[in-house]
Computed example of a mutant assay.
Amino acid sequence: MDCVQIGDESYQSYCAERDGILSSLARRAKILEDAFNSLEGVTCNKAEGAMYLFPRIRLPRRAIKAAGAANTAPDAFYCKRLLNATGVVVVPGSGFGQVPETWHFRCTILPQEDKIPAVASRLTEFHKGFMDEFRD
């Protein structure tokens, strides 16, 4: 596969498009990272070279108990409730072999940049309601 090289007719437009895409991905990641870090019981590291964020969530005991009653991993319980309430799809970390008794989920940063603030808003609203419902 040939790459665009300096001096090629399309080199400048290629660089502009590439840089625009990478800048947009960085902005999307930062908006979601900040949103996650503002949520009660959630911490999220910076996305570094990936299209995903992996927030850690500390779930209330009542939520963990409700997940057990539903025969579901607690992070999968949270993710399914999020999907049903908001249409936002995230993947439970229990499918990735996380440390026992810790809960995470994977969130992509690929929605269009102009849609990211709405995603962050729906996540925030859902999370507040979920935590209120299951608060110990």
Results as ranks from 00 to 15, higher is better:
Arg56Asp: 05
Arg56Phe: 08
Arg56Lys: 14
Arg56Trp: 03
Ile57Leu: 14
Ile57Asp: 07
Ile57Asn: 03
Ile57Tyr: 06
Ile57Arg: 05
Ile57Val: 14
Arg58Val: 09
Arg58Glu: 11
Arg58Gln: 10
Arg58Gly: 00
Arg58Thr: 08
Leu59Glu: 11
Leu59His: 03
Leu59Ile: 06
Leu59Gly: 04
Pro60Ser: 03
Pro60Glu: 05
Pro60Gly: 06
Pro60Thr: 07
Arg61Asn: 10
Arg61Glu: 13
Arg62Leu: 15
Arg62Lys: 14
Arg62Thr: 13
Arg62Ser: 14
Ala63Ile: 01
Ala63Met: 08
Ala63Leu: 02
Ala63Arg: 00
Ala63Pro: 05
Ala63Asn: 02
Ala63Thr: 08
Ile64Ala: 04
Ile64Trp: 01
Ile64Glu: 13
Ile64Gly: 04
Lys65Arg: 09
Lys65Tyr: 01
Lys65Ala: 05
Lys65Val: 00
Ala66Gln: 01
Ala66Pro: 03
Ala66Lys: 01
Ala66Trp: 00
Ala67Gln: 02
Ala67Lys: 00
Ala67Tyr: 02
Ala67Ser: 02
Gly68Phe: 04
Gly68Val: 00
Gly68Leu: 06
Ala69Ile: 02
Ala69Lys: 07
Ala69Met: 12
Ala69Tyr: 02
Ala69Thr: 01
Ala69Leu: 09
Ala70His: 04
Asn71Leu: 15
Asn71Thr: 12
Asn71Ile: 11
Asn71Pro: 11
Asn71Glu: 15
Thr72Met: 15
Ala73His: 15
Ala73Cys: 13
Ala73Pro: 13
Ala73Arg: 13
Pro74His: 09
Pro74Arg: 04
Pro74Asn: 11
Pro74Leu: 06
Asp75His: 11
Asp75Glu: 12
Asp75Pro: 12
Asp75Arg: 06
Asp75Tyr: 10
Asp75Cys: 10
Ala76Lys: 12
Ala76Phe: 01
Ala76Thr: 05
Phe77Glu: 00
Phe77Ile: 02
Phe77Thr: 01
Tyr78Val: 03
Tyr78Lys: 02
Tyr78Cys: 02
Tyr78Gly: 01
Tyr78His: 04
Tyr78Ser: 05
Cys79Phe: 01
Cys79Ile: 03
Cys79Pro: 03
Cys79Gly: 08
Cys79Asn: 04
Lys80Ser: 09
Lys80Gln: 15
Lys80Leu: 13
Lys80Met: 12
Lys80Asp: 13
Lys80Cys: 02
Arg81Trp: 07
Arg81Leu: 13
Arg81Glu: 13
Arg81Gly: 12
Leu82Ser: 08
Leu82Arg: 10
Leu82Pro: 07
Leu82Tyr: 11
Leu83Ala: 13
Leu83Pro: 02
Asn84Phe: 12
Asn84Pro: 07
Asn84Gln: 15
Asn84Glu: 14
Asn84Lys: 15
Asn84Ala: 15
Asn84Gly: 13
Asn84Val: 07
Ala85Ser: 15
Ala85Arg: 14
Ala85Met: 10
Ala85Ile: 07
Thr86Lys: 02
Gly87Ser: 03
Gly87His: 05
Gly87Leu: 05
Gly87Glu: 08
Val88Cys: 04
Val88Pro: 06
Val88Asp: 03
Val88Gln: 04
Val88Ala: 01
